[in-house]
Computed example of a mutant assay.
Amino acid sequence: MAREPILSASTNDDEINHRLRPQYMRDMIGQRDVIERLQISISAAMKRGEPLSHVLFDGPPGLGKTTFATVIPRELGVNVHLASGPTLKAPKDLVPFLTNLQERSVLFIDEIHRMPRGVEEYLYTAMEDFRIDLVLGEGVNARTHNLPLKPFTLIGATTRAGMLSGPLRDRFPIREHLGFYDLSEMTRIVQRSATKLKIDTDPDAALELARRSRSTPRIANTRLLWVRDYAETKANGIITVPVALDALAMLEIDTLGLDKQDRAYLTTLVRVFGGGPAGVEAIAHTMNTAADTLSDEVEPYLLRLELVVRTPRGRMATAKAYQHLQLNMPTDG
């Protein structure tokens, strides 16, 4: 029987979001091709009595990278130790994690792309040869000691795989990209979360929540929690379609899942810059916000919905954006 993983570091998710996460792969919705490939690798590793090969998950935030990282150890029946790339500032910060690993256990490094290059390079021998080099002493008296490690599995998660060095990426035999979820999968996720939270939710209300959650489970769960609070305050705790629509309207979430900031971006691009082309810096200054906020948080979804396109001259609004804003698209001449 699989043991419950030991979480050796705290996560950023609150207790509710942790409760909503699936515990085993059989409980997961979506990402079926990824799950099938992982199940084969896990089964083979367990039959051989070896650690699972190192795994790298990449993809946008909220699609299940951390969920996979906590589910895999349960499937293997081993412990998992959690670390975060930004906190690993020097090789010495890795040593406690690596030396405390048990046989075939899992080390999960979230945001692995944010580790300094020196820390990446320190991982090479640990991943390939299961050993690390410790420098004892200083100056002319310093000497190197080779410390063997127990065979383990490293699971890395990143939203920017391109920021990892090639040598580190190549040391992950299993690389999986997590894609967005379709509407039926999102609806099932909302319904499952509602059941876990013991929320009385109409199927059509779950569908509407799913439709406005950007194909991302984390966003769906966050918005479900808000609608639950709204329903408990305004509608005796029952989430119907009108209740869901009223709650989302209070958050200013529209039919495409755009929020107030998304629409402000589109409106600025259309009204101030005539639909573009316009640079993100100019748009950010006009909106009085940071350019990286727009490029990292706002633009990816607008680009995915084909409401905005990037050109060599700047961002441009599409006909679909004008239609969504219920504005007439300007004609040439």
Results as ranks from 00 to 15, higher is better:
residue 160 R to M: 10
residue 58 D to P: 00
residue 149 L to V: 12
residue 330 P to K: 01
residue 140 V to M: 11
residue 223 R to T: 09
residue 271 R to C: 07
residue 177 H to E: 13
residue 208 E to R: 04
residue 267 T to W: 12
residue 236 N to G: 12
residue 87 T to E: 10
residue 183 L to Y: 04
residue 90 A to K: 14
residue 108 F to K: 04
residue 255 T to S: 14
residue 261 Q to I: 15
residue 181 Y to R: 05
residue 255 T to I: 08
residue 37 R to K: 13
residue 247 A to T: 11
residue 94 L to E: 06
residue 40 I to L: 11
residue 6 I to M: 09
residue 92 K to G: 00
residue 263 R to V: 15
residue 269 L to H: 02
residue 17 N to V: 03
residue 175 R to L: 03
residue 189 I to G: 03
residue 121 E to W: 07
residue 45 A to C: 06
residue 35 I to W: 05
residue 42 I to S: 03
residue 60 P to N: 09
residue 227 V to A: 12
residue 316 M to E: 12
residue 215 S to F: 12
residue 312 P to F: 03
residue 300 P to K: 05
residue 50 E to V: 11
residue 24 Y to H: 14
residue 9 A to S: 14
residue 65 K to R: 06
residue 53 S to W: 09
residue 22 P to N: 07
residue 303 L to D: 01
residue 252 E to I: 12
residue 57 F to D: 01
residue 135 V to C: 04
residue 17 N to T: 06
residue 239 I to G: 02
residue 194 A to F: 01
residue 96 P to N: 07
residue 23 Q to E: 15
residue 49 G to V: 02
residue 91 P to A: 09
residue 136 L to W: 07
residue 239 I to Q: 05
residue 58 D to G: 10
residue 270 V to I: 15
residue 163 M to S: 05
residue 57 F to Y: 01
residue 265 Y to L: 15
residue 30 G to Q: 07
residue 238 I to T: 07
residue 331 T to V: 03
residue 109 I to A: 03
residue 220 A to D: 14
residue 224 L to S: 10
residue 116 P to R: 04
residue 158 T to C: 08
residue 239 I to N: 06
residue 247 A to Q: 07
residue 279 G to M: 10
residue 168 L to W: 02
residue 114 R to W: 05
residue 115 M to K: 00
residue 111 E to I: 07
residue 105 S to L: 02
residue 226 W to V: 14
residue 54 H to Q: 11
residue 80 V to R: 05
residue 29 I to N: 04
residue 328 N to K: 15
residue 303 L to H: 11
residue 271 R to E: 15
residue 8 S to F: 04
residue 180 F to T: 11
residue 3 R to Q: 09
residue 98 L to R: 06
residue 15 E to V: 08
residue 299 E to F: 12
residue 284 A to E: 06
residue 16 I to F: 01
residue 194 A to R: 04
residue 295 S to W: 01
residue 290 A to C: 01
residue 143 R to P: 00
residue 85 G to N: 05
residue 229 D to T: 10
residue 201 T to D: 00
residue 322 Y to V: 02
residue 202 D to K: 13
residue 315 R to V: 09
residue 263 R to Y: 10
residue 285 H to D: 13
residue 85 G to K: 04
residue 202 D to M: 13
residue 196 K to L: 13
residue 168 L to M: 13
residue 180 F to Q: 08
residue 30 G to H: 10
residue 240 T to R: 08
residue 68 F to P: 06
residue 98 L to D: 08
residue 233 T to C: 07
residue 330 P to H: 02
residue 15 E to T: 05
residue 31 Q to W: 04
residue 291 A to Q: 13
residue 264 A to H: 03
residue 15 E to R: 05
residue 205 A to S: 03
residue 263 R to N: 06
residue 252 E to F: 09
residue 131 R to I: 13
residue 121 E to L: 07
residue 8 S to P: 00
residue 1 M to V: 13
residue 72 I to F: 08
residue 21 R to Q: 11
residue 298 V to E: 02
